[in-house]
């Protein structure tokens, strides 16, 4: 049949000429490229200004020690004091709080997303608790659990919980009706529908909230440690302020900033990996 071969040729032509993007492997390749240096310009300028200000004594060293003094302080804190211990204490709290908070949020968010009854059951309570900031909970929780890690984990987990819970719920509710219809046509069971359609469809919204929550948790640990307890980066910051150890204060601030940056970048990469199917994701 000449006709058939014609159409196959036509198909081949179409397949060959259509825009199958060459960037099928782009995400991977992008990760291996040399880092773009544009983002380092501003930190460099800040560093230069900082050094200049210190050299010409524009600002009293008590309030703004020179960069080198800060580096020396970092080394001293690391070797003579227990900076690593405090750092790990903070990481431990944030890690546990993030895992517990987001796991509970995913579980309940999925349940509430799939069932209006569950949503109605939790809704009013959650909406009230949500509006009491984590920091307002801390004094009470500290009374109950003491000034150790558990109180902070609980309070930060609470702050992680809500954005993830709400986004999971909303992500599930926003699943296109067309996809549900398709699942019906393909005779998918409820479990197949959840696993193959609803959860992947809600994933972009869930991933955004996880990234946001991870950053939030890291920011909150400093506050929580500053308000109670005797260890962690937050504690060190407030201690340094009290003792007027501005160099140590700056060391802690830089570490907090860099760790926050690292957390955000790794969440971004995780998001990119999970959502590699998403069009136009590279922006």
């Amino acid at each position: 049949m000449s006709h058939t071969s014609d159409t196959i040729e036509a198909a081949a032509v179409e397949a060959a000429t259509v825009d199958l993007p060459a960037h099928a492997e782009a995400p991977g390749r992008r990760g291996l490229q040399l880092p773009n240096l544009t983002g380092f310009i501003l930190p460099f300028i800040i560093l230069v200004l900082w050094q200049t200000a210190a050299t010409y004594k524009w600002i009293d060293p008590v309030f703004l020690p020179a960069p080198l003094t800060v580096v020396t302080a970092f080394w001293k804190m690391l070797t003579k004091q227990k900076l690593a211990f405090d750092f790990l204490a903070s990481i431990n709290i944030v890690g546990q709080a993030f895992i517990y908070g987001s796991a509970a949020a995913l579980l309940l968010g999925i349940a509430a997303g799939l069932s209006r009854k569950v949503e109605e059951f939790f809704g009013p309570t959650f909406d009230t608790i949500r509006h009491i900031p984590g920091i307002a909970w801390l004094p009470l929780i500290v009374l109950w659990l003491g000034i150790g890690a558990p109180a902070k984990i609980l309070v930060i987990a609470k702050s992680v919980f809500f954005p993830v819970f709400l986004n999971t719920l909303q992500g599930i509710r926003n699943v296109e009706k067309n996809y549900i219809e398709l699942a019906k046509v393909l005779t998918l069971t409820r479990w197949q529908l959840i696993r193959k359609v609803i959860l992947p469809a809600a994933m972009p919204s869930i991933m955004v909230s996880l990234r946001y929550a991870a950053g939030l948790a890291w920011a909150l640990v400093v506050v929580a440690e500053g308000l109670s307890g005797l260890e962690g980066l937050g504690f060190l910051i407030f201690r340094a302020q009290g003792l007027l150890l501005t160099d140590q204060l700056l060391v802690c601030m830089v570490i907090i900033g860099l760790v926050g940056f690292a957390i955000d970048r790794s969440m971004f990469l995780a998001q990119k990996r999970v959502l590699k199917w998403k069009q136009g994701y590279d922006g």
């Binding site: 397949a15 825009d19 199958l20 993007p21 199917w277 998403k278 069009q279």
Partner: peptide
């Protein structure tokens, strides 16, 4: 192994 966004409308 292509994802839908990598296909043209016809494909």
């Amino acid at each position: 192994k292509a994802y839908p966004h990598e296909l043209s409308g016809g494909m």
